[in-house]
Design a protein around this nucleic acid. Sequence first.
DNA 1: GGAGCGCTGTATCGTATGTTACGTATTTTG
DNA 2: CAAAATACGTAACATACGATACAGCGCTCC
Lengths: 275, 275
Amino acid sequence: MISSIAELISDRIGAMPAGERRAAQTLIANYPLIGLKTVAEFSTAAGVSSPTILRFVARLGFQNYPEFQSALQDELAAQLQSPATRTLNPASSGGGAVSPMLEATLDNMRETFRHLSERQLADIAATLANRRGKTFLIGGRFTDPLARYMAAHLAIVQPDVHHLAGQEGIWRDRLIDMGKRDVLVIFDIRRYQDSLVRFAETAHQRGVHIVLFTDQWLSPIARFARHVIAGRTAVPSAWDSSAALFVVAETLIGAVTRQLETDGAKRIRELESLR
Amino acid sequence: MISSIAELISDRIGAMPAGERRAAQTLIANYPLIGLKTVAEFSTAAGVSSPTILRFVARLGFQNYPEFQSALQDELAAQLQSPATRTLNPASSGGGAVSPMLEATLDNMRETFRHLSERQLADIAATLANRRGKTFLIGGRFTDPLARYMAAHLAIVQPDVHHLAGQEGIWRDRLIDMGKRDVLVIFDIRRYQDSLVRFAETAHQRGVHIVLFTDQWLSPIARFARHVIAGRTAVPSAWDSSAALFVVAETLIGAVTRQLETDGAKRIRELESLR
DNA sequence: GGAGCGCTGTATCGTATGTTACGTATTTTG
DNA sequence: CAAAATACGTAACATACGATACAGCGCTCC
């Protein structure tokens, strides 16, 4: 059963020509407000012509544009009157595999943050924002993208941020650059990688400050780490989810940026002017 | 300070003549939808004449009726886009900068999936699971790690998955390998990168099936994309959040894996034995 | 390679909508 | 109580909006 226009659209979007699909996509992206504006505004927002918009609403089964707008307004009215339905059933029909996946991910995040005090996060952020040493980031097979993501942001607000990539031999050699004032951020979830464990151990012996992102079962690297972030990873899927760790990483990125605000802002402006 | 039109009205309703007051009351009662309808509808609903409605909006300080409607729409847009402000619960320990960040992220995910039907996701998963062609993934400055993350997983359950890395020239040359049966997954959020747009355009001209991960303002690449995933990115931070897109990516990875279950499982076993 | 079909944009048209002028009703004030 | 001012609605007007006809273009299928 189709209750909302959004569902109606996603139901038929597959059978639409390119232009009308663009209209559908921009409507979904700015749902439903763009549909309450005039045809001209809608069309320019979608990058198509007005007739395409009209053909689009005609394909949805509406006689004319005003009728379509009335439907949107009625829907909005219902939504505004009962805010409960907003947070309720995000994926409507339920049955499929989407909703449980999303629900599990949201739960993971809440759980992850529940076990993570603000104090901890602030400490880690302060460590990362410490400008006296260098920052290195590295990840495992599936988590290396998280290390890259964090490195890409941190490198903008402060100097001396390095992502360790490539073959094991390459980053092992970088150990020579690491000392007591440096920070090493490691991402490692099951199945834990021996190469990373060995790497962490040597770094630890050199006095490097290790920040570990891992799962709730804790990578063996936790023994060497000064800070451990244990994220929930279980989802109804063949794979583990790194989403919770991703959000923690983003939170830390934000916190570090805020701490370095003055210096960071200057750097950002400088970088902007370099482009 | 007056932030909403509703406040503005209740502020001046005392100084209004009877007819305009009726207009004000019916607008408050059906706020704000009646104000988005035509003057005629508004007037009959309020039991007054059209000019009274116009005088009413003029008294509120608007030059004309459309301007008044635009203001209402902007207000609505702000309300819809940040459900956080609606459900604001002071109970959440407040203070630190962690909680709002998490809350915003969770909202972003719910909103993102609310605009994403199972049908769409299933379509995209089917596209990605289609074994007849190759799969290419690429991302922008901050989103490339997402492309890597997805590529790392997809490459395990099926052959011919390539992440496009390095300098622009390098992946431009890979265009020669792309054809009608191939899929190109692009991650592009603000600020959109010209190089990616150009790349997408040429790929589109070659008939490549493009799947776009972008933010709610839609990268210009949306024009060339067969499938568009618009994720919410706004968080109380100096940076945009890619977390919602990350979760969508994980969901798709799971869905593709499920579709390729039989073949995929065989591949996974083979890969395990290779380690 | 050619013919047919479907999609899309340009230009034009009719109309519904917001706007304004004006006359009447109602209230207010001296 | 009278006179003026304010408020309100009717009706005519102009604009801008949605609708439509048509031509160009690309794509698919013989």
